[in-house]
């Protein structure tokens, strides 16, 4: 303690100094966000930045991620189709993946469920499952790629989202379609309009020709083969056509928002 006292600046109120120091300390989540333990130390050595600079490092990384959103939107070709595969290539069993166990996956009563449609649309009438099932459906066998790196090929059947957006009279000049889900802690995710209008972007009701099982998002998931898996929301309960960026469950934690494939 004696040594520490000697290190403090003479003539400066120690309690005020301490309070200022605490203010500059990052909170736990921020520290976890940028770096863990020794790697931060290594980076500090490499860059010559002091520890408080991690705030600017975090801001810089977020800026670059936004820049990458723009680059990916520029790269996105609405006419480029995700490669399709024969049924024999389907991954069996197709993995269940979520931030919770299968036991905690939403159990939705298909008869009581309704899809809410909100925002910049002409017709905000909620849709019952049996009504949605009557819309024309198409099947796709495409590769699902997880942000973690693994991939699996699956068979999804449902209504192209762009057909549904036409039916409800959506303003397709809007920037996003924002989905909300029944997952615990409220999963949600924004989808840029150009991707929403892509021919393969689908309101999915079937997996492998069977009614979508609970594990894969019953009663409805949004299948987006031009995006990473976390941009394919399951257990969807509402969609909103909007010009506002409303964030998303993973997007808010740092995953790149566009996350195009």
């Amino acid at each position: 303690m004696g040594r520490l006292r000697n290190l403090l600046i003479p003539g400066v109120d120690k309690s005020l100094l301490l309070r200022d120091a605490v203010k500059t300390m990052p909170d736990l989540t921020r520290r976890r966000f940028i770096s863990g333990g020794a790697s931060l130390g290594a980076l500090t050595l490499l860059t010559g930045c002091d520890v408080t600079d991690q705030f600017s490092a975090e801001a810089m990384l977020k800026q670059v991620s936004k820049f990458n959103d723009g680059v990916q939107a520029w790269m996105f070709n609405p006419d480029a189709m995700a490669p399709t595969f024969p049924e024999s290539a389907i991954t069996k069993p197709f993995p269940f993946n979520a931030y919770y166990d299968l036991d905690d996956a939403p159990e939705i009563d298909g008869k009581a469920w309704k899809l809410e449609v909100r925002g910049l649309v002409d017709n905000k009438k909620p849709w019952k499952l049996e009504e949605l099932y009557k819309l024309p459906q198409v099947k796709q066998v495409t590769r699902h790629i997880c942000v973690e790196g693994w991939s699996a090929i699956g068979s999804w059947t449902g209504t192209p989202l762009r057909d549904f957006l036409t039916i409800v009279g959506a303003d397709t000049r809007a920037k996003y379609v924002w989905f909300q889900c029944a997952d615990k802690d409220g999963y949600n995710s924004p989808l840029d309009m150009r991707t929403a209008l892509h021919a393969q972007t689908q309101m999915t009701f079937k997996f492998g020709d069977e009614i979508l099982p609970r594990a894969y998002g019953f009663p409805m998931k949004i299948r987006v083969p031009t995006k990473l898996g976390f941009k394919n929301p399951k257990y969807v309960i509402s969609m909103e056509v909007t010009n506002d960026y409303k964030g998303g469950f993973w997007e808010d934690q740092g995953y790149n928002s566009f996350s195009g494939s």
Partner: peptide, 17 residues
């Protein structure tokens, strides 16, 4: 101790920057 980013999301931000 020899990785950067703390978790997958942080690492991806570093990697794509």
């Amino acid at each position: 101790s020899i990785t950067l980013g703390g978790w997958l999301g942080g690492a991806l931000l570093w990697h794509f920057a």
